[in-house]
Design a protein around this nucleic acid. Structure first.
Length: 367
DNA sequence: AAGTCGTGGTC
DNA sequence: TGACCAAGACT
């Protein structure tokens, strides 16, 4: 296709989407959900919500959002928080680098922008953990800056709107859609338009099951609706298979405390805490061998239930043992930490992956 | 460009 | 049950 024909095609598509703009804005103003982060337009609050919402459902975010802002009411307080406290507040939300990057950005904001979110798209995008989508969301939601905020909802809505079979996982597809939106985003309603597009994807042009075209404000303009191909779209290359890892989890306990340890600073669940664990499914014999090697004095060993945890790209198939030892802290030659029940619950961030064993550990500890 | 990085809901 | 999916960013 020649250059002028490409331009013409883009123009005719944009022209059609342009007709939808006022419909989306009006629909959003009349149909938006009442969500905690939609009270006012506080840039910090919007930022926190957008980071939490990345790859995460609204219902899961709500309670974390409230607790996080209560703990850190200002960007400066976030910048000064101990990492362990941050991670404890993020415990169970997943993608823990999000909160570490958010703190890095908070430090940048304190040092460069006097503790206030800059009101400039490029400066916002320059902050840690803020990519194209989140920069556009903060810029437009908080400040009305007319930049696109293209997330998974928008990709789905637009690819259906044009009945486009471009793979939405490709960088090039997202770029095309961002450019198209940049061309038609209304200067005086950037926030409502961007949020409307997202909200439309969230509650009308839904990802699971049949989209609700009967209540969609732009159904008449939608190519997928006209051609009845909504369920085929968007096109998304399927994820590759997960690898399986076998692990043996150890609940090592003396009369009052349980052993935990800090995970490495990089990689899966970086910087969080875990129960000591070993690769593979160990036999009782191997376990006793291991206990001896670190100077542990096992009094009793009990096999625990198996558990499985599924991550995006790996599965843990776990088995566990409870090991009762004598004088834990005096005999163990490791970097383990010995925590009481209160500390396991309220201080150390322990990911959900271990939940079966965390529950068991808590059940056998005294208050 | 493709792999990494969590968890819980849905069909 | 298992596969897919969710307001992505980083390397």
């Amino acid at each position: 296709m020649k250059r002028n024909q490409v331009k013409e095609a883009e123009f005719s598509q944009s022209n059609n989407l342009e007709k939808a703009v006022p419909l989306i804005v009006e629909w959003y103003q009349n149909n938006k959900r009442d969500l905690p982060w939609r009270n006012g337009a506080n840039a910090y609050h919007i930022w926190v919500s957008e980071i939490m919402l990345q790859q995460t459902r609204v219902e899961a975010v709500k309670s974390y959002y409230e607790a996080f802002l209560k703990a850190f009411p200002t960007i400066e307080e976030l910048a000064n928080a101990p990492e362990e406290r941050l991670l404890k507040l993020w415990e169970g939300l997943g993608y823990y680098n999000r909160v570490r990057n958010m703190q890095k950005a908070a430090v940048q904001i304190v040092e460069l922008y006097n503790g206030q979110m800059p009101q400039d798209y490029e400066q916002i995008k320059g902050l840690s953990g803020i990519g194209n989508y989140t920069a556009g969301a903060i810029s437009s939601f908080a400040f009305g800056i007319p930049k696109p905020a293209v997330d998974g909802n928008v990709l789905r809505v637009i690819s259906r709107f044009h009945a486009s079979y471009e793979d939405i996982m490709k960088t090039s597809t997202r770029k095309h859609i961002e450019e198209e939106i940049e061309g038609i985003i209304p200067e005086n309603a950037a926030s409502d338009f961007n949020q409307g597009l997202i909200e439309l994807g969230a509650i009308v042009c839904v990802p699971n099951g049949e989209p609700k075209c009967d209540i969609c404000p732009i159904a008449k303009l939608c190519k997928a609706n006209q051609k009845s191909v909504q369920m085929e779209l968007p096109v998304k290359k399927k994820a590759k298979d997960r690898r399986i890892e076998k692990r043996t989890i150890l609940i090592i306990k003396d009369e009052e405390k349980i052993a935990i340890q800090k995970r490495p600073e990089k990689g899966l669940l970086a910087g969080l805490y875990e129960f000591p664990n070993l690769e593979g499914h160990l036999t009782r014999k191997q376990l006793i061998e291991y206990a001896k090697s670190i100077g542990m004095m096992p009094v009793r060993i009990k096999k625990l239930e198996n558990a499985k945890h599924i991550f995006s790209h790996v599965e843990w198939h776990m088995t566990g043992y409870e090991i009762i030892v004598d004088e834990l802290e005096k005999t163990c030659r490791t970097n383990m930490i010995f925590a009481d029940k209160k500390e396991v619950m309220g201080k150390y961030p322990i990911p959900t992956a271990f939940s079966a064993y965390t529950q068991y550990a808590l059940s056998i500890m005294e208050n």
